[in-house]
Design a protein around this nucleic acid. Structure first.
Length: 422
DNA sequence: TCTGGGGTCCTAGGACCC
DNA sequence: TCTGGGGTCCTAGGACCC
């Protein structure tokens, strides 16, 4: 059996954690640049605020309904997420961290004297007590069914946060009530096609023939179909696989016009991407830089250039040389840039790097330097050691007007609790 | 009348997830 | 005026190998 533990309104709940005055109030968290809504408390959902809705459309509503607004604070959310996952690991030896706010637990072989449902309630209570984040839990025989169960746990009040889909009757009821578009693996594109075919619920889908599913929706569709029928196709995967590509990109806070400013942004993105690369013990054989101009549609300037490295590398210094070269070839003078990004590709384990007879780079030296940079930055926090190209005035930085403090990761931001004066 | 049977690698495009 | 930022997998088709 599998349990899916899903944090409720995760980013909004993190903001509330250190600010209980927000309980009962609508809370929203905005994307980078405070562009659109990416998390909502239940009160905010009740006001009709949509996921992904642009913030400027909502300005009046925010004021009228006294909505608490936050810029994304990914450092805070990442730290709270780690704490939640750490609590979950006390309840199962097999935990798959599926996303920042979700984890699958294998319940096989676990001693649950009062049954799975009671066990799940203990999990939820413990996460609440230790971290303060509300969670919903779905339990079922497959991950896809556990997803449906957790969805019901969240949506249907009588479940009080835990939904257990084990008997055939429970499963049938859940499948009948599950719109096809809510099934894990059936997305925006497939759902309308299925509805056109007369398949509007998960139940209908499980009653299609296997051949038809396979023909129309290929192997992934067939796996979803089998999982909904109770056959396990996806196991709990504890070790996250090394990334095959690493992207770092940002929309700028304001349009940027000079090469130096765009290059500074690209240098920062390259450094961040290279650090992630080293953290997973890999090296990249290609680097792509892209830039986007202002506006949208066909008139918008989009440039991209990829370089292949002669020897795969994890050195920020070396990767940045290629990034700079790529930027030089896509940068157009007179253009106003609103976004740029760096993508590392053709990623391989560092131990598999094929050296070259004609190599000109002192790789040991680079490696030692990167190790020192990473360890100092990790100890001190932030980018204390960085390349000169990253410094400067950061005119490209996104604006985050509603950023909350990093309560749990920065000494400067630790919450001060005042004793009540006598 | 007759036309083998296996592979690999690469890319573009389409779908999905959070 | 303003609309995020990451990822994955699969398939088809073309080019190549023996």
């Amino acid at each position: 059996m599998y349990a899916l533990v899903d944090c409720n309104n995760f980013f909004a709940s993190c903001e509330r954690l250190f600010n209980p005055a927000l309980n009962g109030r609508p809370v929203v968290v905005l994307s980078g640049n405070d562009g659109c809504v990416i998390a909502r408390s239940n009160e905010a959902k009740a006001l009709g605020i949509g996921m992904g809705q642009p913030a400027f459309e909502l300005r009046d509503l925010f004021v009228r309904e006294q909505v608490a607004i936050f810029s994304s604070n990914h450092i805070l959310y990442g730290d709270i997420s780690r704490r939640v996952m750490s609590v979950l690991s006390q309840f199962s030896p097999e935990v798959e961290v599926y996303s920042i706010d979700e984890a699958f637990l294998s319940l096989d072989g676990i001693d649950m004297p009062y049954g799975a449902e009671a066990y799940a309630r203990t999990i939820a209570d413990t996460v609440m007590r230790c971290v303060g984040i509300p969670v919903s839990i779905g339990i079922a025989h497959t991950k896809t069914l556990a997803k449906i169960a957790s969805h019901r746990a969240k949506k249907i009040a009588r479940y009080k946060g835990v939904c257990h889909l084990v008997t055939p009757d429970q499963c049938a009821m859940a499948l009948i009530e599950c719109p096809i578009g809510d099934v894990w693996g059936i997305g925006r594109r497939l759902a309308p096609k299925l509805i056109e075919e007369g398949i509007s619920t998960a139940w209908d889908f499980t009653h299609m023939s296997r051949e038809r599913v396979r023909r129309l929706y290929t192997i992934e569709g067939e796996r979803t179909w089998r999982e909904l029928r109770g056959e396990v196709c996806y196991a709990v995967d504890e070790l996250p696989a090394a990334r095959q590509s690493i992207t770092v990109s940002r929309t700028f806070g304001q349009a940027v016009t000079t090469f130096d400013d765009v290059y500074e942004a690209v240098a920062n993105f390259t450094a961040t991407a290279a650090e992630r690369l080293r953290r997973q013990g890999s090296a990249a054989s290609s680097i792509m830089v892209f830039v986007k101009g202002r506006g949208c549609g066909p008139g918008r300037y989009v440039g991209a250039m990829q370089h292949t490295l002669p020897v795969a590398s994890d050195s920020t210094i070396e990767l940045l040389q290629y990034a700079r070269r790529a930027l030089v070839s896509v940068f157009r003078r007179g253009e106003a840039y609103k976004k740029a990004g760096v993508i590392l590709g053709h990623i391989i384990p560092r131990s598999n790097v094929q050296l070259s007879l004609f190599d000109t780079v002192d790789r040991d030296k680079h490696h030692r330097l990167m190790q020192v940079m990473d360890s100092v930055n990790k100890q001190v926090g932030g980018k204390v050691l960085r390349l000169g190209a990253e410094g400067g005035h950061h005119v490209w930085k996104a604006h985050s007007e509603h950023l909350s403090p990093c309560y749990t990761t920065s000494f400067r931001d630790i919450l001060v609790v005042k004793a009540k004066e006598e």
